[in-house]
Write a protein that binds this DNA or RNA. Structure first.
Length: 648
RNA sequence: GCUGACGUAGCUCAAUUGGCAGAGCACCUGAUUUGUAAUCAGGCGGUUGCGAGUUCGAUUCUCGCCGUCAGCUCCA
């Protein structure tokens, strides 16, 4: 082993120090003040703390509070501070893991009785004390027997120690004041670095994520370097609650759920309008290159045995009792794929027809476990904008590009952007390795030919093939998995799908499974939250509300509504015996894009005074000729404009 | 499915240690006919999720079931 390591500083200068030198000493040699500002260092992009001896050289950067890589270090330390506080107040608590996560950190504890909200508040107060006591994080490297002695009272840590099978692997502990944890690091220098944090919730979690193991109590929290960043984060959480589709779905009268049909949606008149508009939109986009079909909802189990679902997916299927046989021989379909194969099999196909794209909006049922159900994002009954492409192997690249553009273009029309994830073979799968090699290789090559960047999700593919997932980020920065492109060599084999090639011989097509919205239910949930219920005009269930000021204008207003409706606008009349103020307030609450007020002046001039959603209270509505207003709303609807313009 | 919390009028929420179940909004009726973010008055509305148990008495305590929520597991 080389006795020295070479560090390359950002300015290109090289620094050679003995192996085992602490980064803190290197930073001090650059500058005392830098040491005070330093949170950690980065060596060839790998973050390490100031008290971990240098073992290799490379590009050396000092990370301060301004560097994004520093935040997980702070949060990981916050988790230790939490554990320190919990151990002080609840010495019986056994410690599990406490990592930094995307929005903060958590720590798992094994306790005999779960934490209460009061406990959480007490822990947070105790954490405050631990930070004020400014304990340094002290790193120690120990051997396995020593580690076993040190964590003799912590069964979860002992189990973790069993994983250390490579004697060369370094086992380290971090100590802050009274608390010692088995931990790889990195950490901030002392508990005093943690200033702006908050505990958010506690819930149970399986030890090591395994549902067969015991449940631990997990406490979630978040931490930031700056106070305003913490406040902004907490504000975003509050905003997210206001946008919650379950809340807005009720307030805007879009849908309801009922205990008699758990996991299934009752769409109200408004919600159904919205739903149908989305289906229409997808239909319109799929008019040219796709073939829409409808297939049965209920199938004999023979189909599921052939598809492999009976073995792998039966738990999630709703079985239907056959009265004659007294057996559960039928099942509601949980996906459309097999029915599309049956349609494909009904005819002989020429290579000239391919790619052949079947699309279906049929209702699907999946018997999700009760605990998984959640609003519209996780339901038992839903519909996908499902597509199965039958194609020749040499068409994969072009098809993947076509579908990727199709999907991303769809999201763009809502102002949503997506990140791509490439998912490879899972543990539970059908087909041999040769098939998977081939499928992964061709899908990956196709993905790369699109020139778009993507992340790798190892082992996350479908059981019949690798896939590209499209994770959409909403206006609050939260990611949702919606669209998918899945390459399938297995099912063409199982269902003996064929086409006749140019050579007049029989060939095996490849199948691509594609969804864009994921499900309409989930997509609508995301749209509700993305737009905070303020849908663009083309999607708004009620586009225009007409308000006559008094009874004198009621007839004129009704006639104007008629003209709007005749022109294709979803307009309604509110001539209730209420004050104008009241009706304007309600229209605003319902997030109607345009409210047209009609008083004597407007009635005489065939005009409307247009209130535009979002222009705020006390806006000065400009009078617009009725015909002009109608034309503007129609244009806005046709172009599917994302922002309101007709009122301007 | 697992852990925990919760379930009161259509909605949002109240109801001392177990002692007559309330308010605002919505809805209905009347007055008012309104020029831009909730006009006034009156009224209707409940087997407190369902079912047992303890008790003189249960919204309140106990148990079971159903549902919802936060997570975990799973997932479009």
């Amino acid at each position: 082993m080389d006795a020295d390591v070479t560090l390359v500083l950002p300015d290109g200068a090289e620094k050679v120090v003995p192996t085992g030198t602490l980064p803190a000493d290197v930073v001090r040699s650059i500058g005392e003040r830098l040491l005070l500002a330093a949170v950690a260092v980065s060596i060839d992009g790998e973050v390490q703390d100031l008290m971990t001896p240098l073992r290799k050289g490379g590009a050396f950067r000092v990370l301060t509070e301004r560097d994004a890589e520093s935040l997980p270090v702070l949060r990981h330390s916050a988790a230790h501070v939490l554990a320190t506080a919990v151990r002080r107040l609840r010495p019986d608590a056994k410690i599990g893991f406490g990592p930094a996560i995307d929005d903060g950190f958590y720590y798992d504890f094994e306790v005999t009785s779960p934490f209460t909200p009061d406990d959480i508040a007490a822990f947070e107060a105790e954490m405050r004390r631990v930070t004020q006591e400014k304990y340094p994080f002290v790193r120690a490297e120990v051997d396995l027997p020593e580690a076993r002695v040190r964590f003799a009272d912590d069964p979860l840590k002992l189990e973790r120690l069993d994983d250390f099978t490579d004697p060369a692997e370094i086992i380290s502990t971090y100590t802050d004041g009274p608390f010692v944890d088995l931990c790889r690091g990195p950490h901030v220098t002392d508990t005093g670095r943690l200033k702006h944090f908050k505990l958010l919730s506690s819930a149970a979690a399986y030890w090591r994520g395994d549902e067969k193991r015991q449940m631990l109590q997990r406490i979630y929290g978040t931490a930031f370097f700056k106070k305003d960043e913490l406040e902004q984060h907490l504000f975003r959480i509050e905003e997210a609650k206001k946008r919650d589709h379950r809340r807005l779905g009720k307030e805007l009268d879009l849908f309801m759920l009922h205990p008699y049909a758990p996991g299934a949606t009752f769409w109200t008149e408004r919600g159904t309008t919205l739903y149908n508009l989305l289906v229409d939109f997808v239909r319109e986009r799929q008019q040219r290159n796709f073939a829409e079909i409808k297939t049965p909802l209920l199938y004999n189990k023979a189909l599921w045995e052939q598809s492999g679902h009976w073995g792998k997916y039966k738990e999630n299927m709703f079985l239907v009792l056959d009265n004659e046989s007294g057996e559960h021989e039928f099942s509601l379909k949980p996906m459309n794929c097999p029915s599309h194969y049956l349609m494909y099999l009904a005819k002989k196909h020429s290579y000239r027809e391919l790619p052949k794209r079947f699309v279906t909006f049929d209702v699907l049922h999946r018997n999700e476990v009760t605990g998984a159900l959640s609003g519209l994002t996780r339901v038992r009954q839903f519909a996908q904008d499902d597509c199965h492409v039958f194609l020749r192997e040499d068409q994969i690249t072009e098809e993947v590009k076509f579908l990727t553009d199709f999907i991303l273009g769809y999201y763009e029309s809502f102002g949503l952007s997506a990140t791509l994830k490439f998912a490879t073979r899972p543990e539970q799968r059908v087909g041999d390795d040769a098939m998977w090699d081939r499928a992964e290789q061709s899908l990956r090559a196709a993905l790369e030919s699109t020139g778009r960047s993507y992340e790798l999700k190892e082992g996350d593919g479908a059981f019949y093939g690798p896939k590209i997932d499209f994770d959409v980020t909403d206006s609050l920065g939260r990611a949702w998995q919606l669209g998918t492109i899945q390459l399938d060599y297995a099912n063409p084999e199982r269902f003996d799908l064929t086409y006749t090639g140019e050579d007049n011989a029989t060939h095996r097509p490849v199948v691509i499974h594609r969804a864009v919205s994921g499900s309409f239910e989930r997509f609508i949930a995301i749209l509700i939250e993305h737009f905070a219920g303020a849908f663009p005009t083309w999607l708004a269930p009620e586009q225009v509300r007409v308000l006559p000021i008094s009874l004198d204008q009621a007839a004129v207003a009704a006639a104007i509504v008629e003209r709007m409706v005749a022109a294709g606008i979803r307009a309604s009349l509110d001539d209730r015996n209420e004050t104008l103020k009241y009706r304007v307030a309600e229209g605003a609450r319902m997030k109607v894009p345009y409210m047209c007020v009609i008083g004597r002046r407007e009635a005489d001039a065939d005009q409307v005074a247009v209130n535009t959603r979002g222009a705020g209270e006390g806006q000065k509505p400009a009078p617009v000729a009725v015909e002009d207003f109608i034309a503007r709303v129609i244009a806005e609807t046709k172009t599917r404009a994302l922002s309101l313009t007709a009122g301007a």
